[in-house]
């Protein structure tokens, strides 16, 4: 069910480049500041996705349920 809603197949061009950008977004931040950035990032992306079914599947997948 999860697979149908949430795209868990490779979908990001230049995966190494993206990963480096993700880590770089936290450069020079304290753990707490990083938590803040992560929370904002989740909210921005969640709004971009919009679809509640997909978001629910992602929350479930992230918890490893």
């Amino acid at each position: 069910m999860t697979e149908m809603l949430l795209n868990t197949q490779p979908n990001i061009a230049d995966p190494d480049g993206f990963y480096a950008e993700l880590i770089a977004a936290h450069d020079g931040l304290s753990d707490e500041e990083s938590q803040t950035v992560n929370a904002r990032l989740i909210l921005l992306l969640a709004n971009h996705v919009g679809d509640r079914e997909v978001l629910r599947a992602a929350l479930k997948a992230a918890r490893g349920d």
């Binding site: 938590q35 803040t36 929370a39 904002r40 989740i42 909210l43 709004n47």
Partner: peptide, 22 residues
Amino acid sequence: VSHTFRNAVLDLAETNAFARPL
């Protein structure tokens, strides 16, 4: 974590319309 998300919503709401309904 609930506090972090709450404040992230408030931070974003100033310039991002999507966060205001949250």
